[in-house]
């Protein structure tokens, strides 16, 4: 579960004191936290992202190779979790069970 997925940085912004950014993972987009690469990345760069946190910058070639390798290995579970969150949302739950 610790492999992380490389993606391309689409945008960077301030999220209440934390550097946040939109990352494109082979077509799936998701906001992630860049606090641990603050000052080291720009839009258009590639980063390895694990559970919503960018942990290292990589070059484009390495990002592509790694993404393909993960795909071959079916080690892209994190993308499924992203989709699940996108589907169910993080808003208020409707009712409180009795």
């Amino acid at each position: 579960m610790c492999l992380g997925i490389p993606g391309r940085i689409v945008s960077l912004s301030d999220g209440g004191g934390l550097l946040m950014g939109m990352v494109d993972f082979g077509g799936v987009r998701r906001e992630v936290c860049f606090a641990y690469l603050d000052g080291q990345v720009e839009v258009g760069d590639y980063a390895v992202v694990h559970v919503g946190f960018a942990i290292s910058r990589v070059d484009e070639e390495e990002a592509r190779r790694t993404y393909e390798a993960l795909k071959e290995m079916s080690e892209l579970d994190e993308l499924d979790w992203m989709r699940e969150v996108a589907e169910t949302g993080l808003g208020p739950l409707k009712e409180r069970p009795a």
Binding site: R30, V32, C33, V51, G52, F53, E78, W81, M82, E84, V85, T88, L90, G91, P92, L93, R96, P97
Partner: peptide, 24 residues
């Protein structure tokens, strides 16, 4: 069985869920 179990991608998702559900 009806337990509220949610998959999150980032631990910050869980925090967001907490902020949006202050009574839980």
């Amino acid at each position: 069985r009806g337990g509220e179990v949610r998959v999150v991608y980032s631990p910050l998702d869980a925090l967001e869920l907490a902020r949006n559900n202050p009574d839980r």
